[in-house]
Design a protein around this nucleic acid. Structure first.
Lengths: 330, 330
DNA sequence: ATGAAAGCGCTAACAC
DNA sequence: GTGTTAGCGCTTTCAT
């Protein structure tokens, strides 16, 4: 059923029917009787305006593109969940893309989203280069979790530097001097900033760098496992691991377990990314909790501000340490 | 830049340009020279056809609606990830909705998706009633994870009955006779089928039902915690928990830990839903692994078969037990 | 208080 | 080998 058909049935013009159905009957002084008739007929015939036609006409799709590197990573799943909720509240639907940490896929995705005329974009981009983002200068966009310092596109993210510094300081204050940092995807700003925070703390507290290692190549469990295994196979073992992501921490846990070592007695562990499970396992894991909820909420608000032509300011939100039982003083 | 503008620039008709750009130059015998000219101009001016206009004209959006009750639940996040990948391979984009286990929201969502003219729908529906699904009789739809036996809409799901039976049998064979089943959302078929499998095993092996308990109301961690707590507060404790979902299992773990009990020495635990973490924690958790990958893949294939007017058959895929260290013989 | 007509950007039937 | 034209279903300007 189309608007034209419905209006024919009612012996009214499409114009009038459209006006009633889009809630503009007051504005155009449509008679109460007509309004009632139209509304009744719409319900009776289950008429819903074709959004595709509406979108074409109005040049607005009420759709926001959400581009995420890995939706099966709990951190991003939680973020997506929050964002979806916020957008829904504002009457928008989410067009989702999982780029699988692949820059080419991301580039292609962005082009797709643009030709689909999404009203805005929320992206956690891949890669240290932002070239592929240049094309969307005109499209309201907010970067989430990952960003580019010198780019004009606004972002909302955790203060990864500060969070990592805090974690490292925490280890150092407990006399850990041999620390291995299990890093994630090296070409992401989140990883780079965490590493920077780690290194800065090491430097500030005059820790000898000869016992400091930074190893790893992505945020997966497998990579955490592999990295930790490599470290643990050396004779000279560290006294603490700093995992730069929740999946990495779980991978490290697996490696530690296989070597029959005990956390924290044999080796301490602190991790980025809070996980409900971290509280529940034995030992419970000390973490740096990212403010996922706030990121989702703020990013959505900012996106709508941009759409409304208001000014916005990028934000780095402080992470919070949650102290548990996976780190001991030595 | 629109097609009309581009064609004016080229001194060609929109038709010709459209034909070249949609790869039909052969079919319409457009001259090689024209083809080259058009392609070059399209690239030069970054022209991408407006999908909204295309969709309206072609009555096809290359968009599939994915309706999920809780994307932050790792089981659904994994499923969504797999599905998104499969759809992308076939050139479709995903319109995502998290219904938050709310029937009203789901009903509204479905209506939204329909007026957006998605080409098909993949839904893990909420509720034991399927009334709200009746409206989409004409829209290609496949139900995932949750389904309705007497409905004509095809589905792909785990064989939950069989999986739960298997788990319960496993406990019984290890002499557990006091078992508490920690259930999820009662008005979902997955939960109902798991409970049915549980009860059937109890009956088949002549276990006295006086020591059998079934408790709980949803698939959340909180509910698992609450349920387990309630059970553990009784004097007469069970010897084993059967958690009907991964989050429930983690909640139970939390309750067990707080009572200073040890798994499996004090109480055994087996859970539905495999989780990477289940392998890594101490003790590792014995689970019934749902075939998430297969569900995602099969559901996508079926959806495309329906779109192509082929016949499809609903499928229940067997779950696989993964034996670990959270259950002992007593 | 209501309607006629144009047009959003695209494709396809039909013409030449 | 290429162009003209109509139309997908809606909203809105302008007219009455």
């Amino acid at each position: 059923m189309t608007l034209a058909e419905l209006s024919k049935l009612l012996n009214l013009s499409p114009t009038t029917v459209s006006r009633v159905l889009s809630g503009n009957s007051k504005k155009y002084r449509i008679s109460a009787q007509t309004v009632k008739k139209v509304q009744a007929a719409a319900i009776e015939h289950h008429f819903k305006p074709n959004q595709v036609a509406q979108n074409l006409r109005l040049k607005r799709t009420n759709t926001i593109g959400l581009v995420i590197p890995d939706i099966s990573n709990p951190f991003f799943a939680n973020l997506a969940s929050k964002i979806e909720y916020e957008l829904r509240k504002r009457g928008k639907l989410v067009l989702l893309c999982d780029t699988n940490e692949d820059t080419d896929l991301e580039t292609e995705t962005l082009s797709l989203m643009m030709s689909r005329k999404v009203d805005g974009l929320l992206i956690a981009p891949v890669g240290l280069s932002s070239d592929h983002l240049n094309n969307l200068k005109e499209l309201p966009t907010v970067l989430i979790d990952r960003y580019y310092k010198n780019l004009s596109i606004p972002y909302v993210s955790t203060n990864n530097y500060e969070g990592a510094y805090q974690a490292t300081k925490y280890l150092i204050e407990r006399n850990h001097k041999k620390i291995s940092c299990l890093q994630g995807l090296t070409n992401t700003i989140s990883n780079a900033e965490r590493v920077r925070g780690f290194n800065q703390a090491i430097a500030d507290f005059n820790i000898s760098t000869k016992d400091i290692k930074i190893i790893g190549s992505d945020f997966s469990l497998e990579n955490g496992y592999k990295s930790a295994n490599e470290i643990l196979s050396n004779e000279d073992m560290p006294t603490a691991f700093f995992a730069l992501g929740n999946q990495i921490a779980f991978g490290a846990l697996k490696a530690i377990k296989e070597k029959d070592l005990i956390v924290p007695d044999d080796i301490s562990l602190i991790s980025f990314d809070e996980q409900p499970y971290f509280e529940l396992i034995v030992p419970s894991i000390t973490t740096i909790k990212q403010p996922t909820e706030q990121i989702g909420q703020l990013a959505t608000e900012m996106l709508f501000d941009i759409i409304d032509k208001k000014d916005v300011k990028s934000q780095l939100i402080l992470a919070k340490m949650i102290e548990r039982n996976s780190v001991i003083s030595i």
